[in-house]
Amino acid sequence: MRLARVEGNVVATRKHPSLEGWRLMVCQPINLEGEDDGTPIIAIDPHGAGMHQRVIVSSDGLAARRMVGDNRSPVRMMITGIVDKTEEDAA
């Protein structure tokens, strides 16, 4: 799973039916210091993450398919948690 920061959302009227009604959030993967670390990912968001909030994004399609309730859906990325606090290990 990736640590990411929510940096926007996407509006698409014409899309795979299983994505209908889902919030499509732009999630920028970040490292522990908060610097960008990879290209932005669009993930469905069942938790209502707010702008610039840090989240955990999972790339497990099985869980995402179950969440959207369509076994033939290509959905893959899903926000699985909203980060409260991260501690940096002293190591």
């Binding site: 920061r5 940096e7 926007g8 959302n9 996407v10 509006v11 698409a12 009227t13 014409r14 899309k15 795979h16 994505l19 499509l24 732009v26 920028q28 932005p40 702008m51 610039h52 290509p74 959905v75």
Partner: peptide, 15 residues
């Protein structure tokens, strides 16, 4: 790789 959405608008506000 499969196209899953034709995008109309994107709101992007990086921090």
């Amino acid at each position: 790789a499969i196209c899953a959405a034709l995008v109309d608008t994107v709101y992007h506000d990086p921090m």
